[in-house]
Design a protein around this nucleic acid. Structure first.
Lengths: 224, 224
DNA sequence: TCAAGGGAATTGGTCAGACCGGTTGACGGG
DNA sequence: CCCGTCAACCGGTCTGACCAATTCCCTTGA
């Protein structure tokens, strides 16, 4: 039954009854309106959340995700079906992000470069305060790959970064995240911005490859 | 909480504790074993079902899906103008196959090189008879990426090659598929085999990049 | 008058226990 | 030996309750 309800709610989202960014009715009210119990309604909501259509905030409410992709994605892909190894995920991200950096240098507009610069500025502030800029790293890299104007790259890199925040990566993250690496990352990303401004695709790719080479050694080389 | 439980169960599936096709313990037993209530356990199972890892049969039990691979990672080219275009697909294949070639040179075993050589031999025979070796091209490239020993690469490249056989690519295929390009392809792929035998990753990547550069111009440059 | 504090109402998160209908498989009758 | 029956088991659903987080309004004090 939860599948029927999920489809029903998804239809309401797609036809605009529940607009992106808006709050859905409360679980109790929604359950009564649809004519099912709250547990069943919850199961439908969890299916929609797993599918990436909605997000919930405890004590507040359930919201339609604002960044809905135009193509329906319901039956598939939460990153959950990626293969097991962290090394494999890293290699995939390396291949995609290096290629995306080159394309982004050729294609990024001023607005996209501004978004990247803002992220870099926030990173500076975080590092200055001694805080972990990991989440901002993700934002930067996702924005960079978006600037490549390739939906496939964007989608895959997003999923790979999301997977990187899971439990599987926890011990590896500790190996590379420290004050020194944060500062080094700021320099690298600043150079990347210069390459983008100069529309120098080769330089952008080279910088990204050097970055992944350096990080990869810290992650996976036993000697370090 | 259901997300934590879902990850936990997923880990058990991935490490083989719950093998594909096998039945999971009942909801009541599983909930007690994990230490949560049955509704919460059910929410985790629904997340896994939505993600395509398991399936439930009423009155019988919950089973690990036997076919974990064919679940697509991203929506591709179901319609004509839906989803990423041919250029985006080409760029993705380029990024992935070039990286895979380098890894394959480092990792391919004798058996995998033999499979590639057999495919190349069949290609020779086809071209000698004047037949289109396109399908054999696909076999070769898929085998090559498999030799990189990275499931993510394998799945994505498979899917992109499958999309390449669709209607969306039809006019583009005509631009590059002719007797001359077939013969040139044989030379390139023979060189690739040498790089693999020499375990020369850089050479393999360079050859693949040159290949994609050449083909990409024929596909997408208006002047040719 | 306005800002800060506090508490009540609302919301999602979790739980226990119960009942229903479908599936399976063993047991017993033909 | 085959087949039908039935009990045990399993997922599906519901009720009702309590908890924790968040919000927001109203009170209080400056």
């Amino acid at each position: 039954m939860y599948e029927q309800i999920a489809e029903q709610i998804e239809a309401l989202i797609r036809d605009g009854t529940f607009a992106p960014g808006k709050r859905l009715p409360g679980e109790r009210e929604l359950a009564e309106r649809v004519g099912i119990s709250r547990p069943s309604l919850r199961e439908a909501l969890i299916a929609l959340e797993t599918a990436g259509l909605i997000e919930t905030r405890v004590g507040d409410g359930t919201y339609v995700r604002a960044d809905l992709s135009p193509t329906p994605v319901f039956p598939l892909a939460t990153g959950r079906d990626l293969g097991p190894g962290t090394l494999e995920q890293f290699e995939a991200r390396r291949a995609l992000e290096c290629a995306a950096a080159e394309l982004a240098a050729q294609r990024a507009g001023a607005a996209e470069r501004a978004v990247l610069q803002e992220s870099l500025d926030r990173m500076h502030a975080l590092v200055a305060r001694g805080e972990n800029p990991a989440e901002e790293h993700r934002v930067f890299h996702v924005a960079l790959v978006d600037a490549a104007h390739n939906q496939i790259f964007s989608r895959l890199v997003r999923e790979l970064w999301r997977a990187r925040q899971g439990a599987m990566w926890e011990t590896l993250r500790l190996k590379v995240e420290n004050a020194e690496s944060w500062r080094a990352g700021l320099v690298t990303r600043a150079q990347l911005m210069e390459a983008l401004a100069a529309r120098d695709g080769a330089a952008a790719r080279a910088l990204m490859e050097a970055h992944f080479h350096r990080v990869g050694r810290k992650y996976f080389d036993p000697g370090e």
